[in-house]
Amino acid sequence: MDRLSALRLFVRAVETGSFSRAARDAGLSQPATSRAIAALEADLGARLLLRTTRRLSVTEAGQRVYEQAQRLLDEDSALVEAAAGADREPVGRLRVSTSIAFATDEVAPHIEGFLASFPRVRLDLAATDARVDAVAEGIDLILRLGPLSDSGMTGRRLGVYRRWLVASPEMLARLDEDAPLEDRLRGHCVVCSGSTLGGRWRLDGPQATVSFEASGAVTAGAGSVVRSLAMAGAGVALLPSFAVREELASGRLVRVAPDWSGPPIDLTALWTHRELPRKGRVFLDYLSPLLGLDER
């Protein structure tokens, strides 16, 4: 077996944690797969995997080889794609980075349909709320919410999400609807300390803009926790529309002052190469129309 094929088996064994699964995916027997990886280890002069009756574990050298092999296999897929032209089915690993909330609420519901349409793409959804080094971490595509600070990256603006004031029906009933908005909310806010807004809320209305320090008894660091607190009646939250659509549809949350909204959030697709690889383009083309953007 050539080295590239052996590396492909090795990568699949690491990803699945199983020789038998890697063998089945490749259409080989388990003994043949084991022999191929043992030959790869002999060829490279390093132990890559530690095998027990229960599991596989990757050695330090194996982790280095795994990371380099992923890049090599992706480059091989890109080479085949370039030679075949635009009509060939996209193939290979696609690593997409976005925030945990956006991955959960907007991306994950559509993954099954995408993979059914493009079964030869292996999707790695790298969800994190930290900024990533796209080149160092092998990211193909970033879906970024909010302002951009990346230099040297190609981007495409996909649209805008609004920030909405939401609360439980019980909390809404306790608010003084006749009071000015800032007075109505004072002391009843659930603040997301992890948001770019922090504790200072700016709200745009039909004929005015108000800005004030949001106050309340509860603060949380994650939007998902803020959403749960709002549903539990802890106060009024200011959250992106994509994070509350399901709860609004079910009645667990209701809009507060629906004529008002917070600063809009841009959604931008970013990639490091001059051209996004075809597997990334088909993913973006598939996903974009399905997103619940407020403006495109």
Results as ranks from 00 to 15, higher is better:
residue 240 P to E: 03
residue 175 L to F: 04
residue 208 A to T: 10
residue 143 L to T: 01
residue 239 L to G: 08
residue 234 A to G: 03
residue 279 K to R: 15
residue 193 S to D: 01
residue 61 A to G: 03
residue 253 L to M: 03
residue 278 R to E: 07
residue 184 R to Q: 15
residue 89 E to Y: 01
residue 31 P to Y: 09
residue 197 L to M: 13
residue 45 G to Y: 05
residue 14 V to G: 00
residue 288 S to T: 15
residue 115 L to N: 09
residue 147 P to G: 11
residue 114 F to Y: 11
residue 18 S to C: 02
residue 191 V to M: 07
residue 30 Q to G: 03
residue 251 G to E: 02
residue 153 M to T: 13
residue 206 P to I: 02
residue 98 T to H: 04
residue 179 A to V: 02
residue 263 P to G: 10
residue 84 A to S: 11
residue 102 F to A: 13
residue 59 T to S: 11
residue 45 G to V: 09
residue 211 S to P: 00
residue 174 R to P: 05
residue 291 L to C: 04
residue 268 T to D: 05
residue 7 L to S: 01
residue 244 V to E: 07
residue 243 A to T: 05
residue 85 G to W: 03
residue 43 D to Y: 11
residue 248 L to E: 07
residue 225 V to L: 11
residue 211 S to V: 07
residue 134 A to L: 13
residue 129 D to K: 07
residue 284 L to Q: 02
residue 137 E to Q: 15
residue 45 G to N: 05
residue 142 I to F: 07
residue 111 I to K: 07
residue 288 S to K: 14
residue 69 A to D: 02
residue 241 S to Q: 05
residue 152 G to M: 09
residue 217 A to Q: 11
residue 279 K to G: 04
residue 110 H to T: 06
residue 4 L to W: 01
residue 86 A to E: 10
residue 26 A to M: 05
residue 60 E to H: 14
residue 9 L to E: 00
residue 267 L to N: 09
residue 151 S to K: 14
residue 159 G to C: 06
residue 22 A to S: 01
residue 189 C to M: 14
residue 179 A to I: 00
residue 30 Q to N: 09
residue 123 L to E: 01
residue 192 C to S: 10
residue 212 F to A: 04
residue 266 D to T: 12
residue 238 L to H: 12
residue 173 A to V: 02
residue 29 S to M: 08
residue 239 L to C: 12
residue 113 G to S: 05
residue 129 D to V: 06
residue 245 R to M: 08
residue 215 S to N: 03
residue 274 R to H: 11
residue 107 V to G: 09
residue 160 V to G: 00
residue 191 V to G: 06
residue 89 E to L: 14
residue 148 L to H: 08
residue 174 R to Y: 00
residue 80 V to I: 12
residue 218 V to I: 13
residue 122 R to Q: 11
residue 15 E to M: 10
residue 272 T to L: 14
residue 180 P to F: 05
residue 163 R to G: 06
residue 253 L to I: 03
residue 244 V to I: 14
residue 284 L to E: 02
residue 245 R to E: 00
residue 54 R to N: 01
residue 79 L to F: 08
residue 40 L to G: 09
residue 241 S to H: 09
residue 29 S to K: 06
residue 81 E to L: 02
residue 97 S to R: 10
residue 188 H to W: 13
residue 267 L to Y: 06
residue 124 D to V: 10
residue 277 P to T: 12
residue 15 E to Y: 12
residue 260 W to F: 13
residue 117 S to T: 08
residue 48 L to Q: 02
residue 143 L to V: 01
residue 122 R to C: 02
residue 58 V to L: 15
residue 150 D to I: 12
residue 210 V to R: 05
residue 242 F to T: 04
residue 64 R to G: 07
residue 285 D to G: 13
residue 266 D to Q: 15
residue 59 T to W: 07
residue 134 A to W: 02
residue 76 D to T: 12
residue 180 P to M: 05
residue 179 A to N: 03
residue 228 S to P: 00
residue 255 R to G: 01
residue 226 V to E: 09
residue 265 I to N: 04
residue 107 V to E: 02
residue 186 R to P: 00
residue 240 P to G: 10
residue 286 Y to R: 03
residue 201 W to I: 04
residue 45 G to L: 09
residue 119 P to S: 13
residue 291 L to A: 05
residue 127 A to M: 07
residue 85 G to P: 06
residue 272 T to S: 15
residue 281 R to S: 08
residue 195 S to H: 13
residue 88 R to S: 13
residue 211 S to A: 13
residue 135 V to F: 12
residue 31 P to S: 07
residue 24 R to N: 01
residue 138 G to W: 03
residue 80 V to M: 09
residue 186 R to H: 08
residue 158 L to I: 06
residue 85 G to C: 04
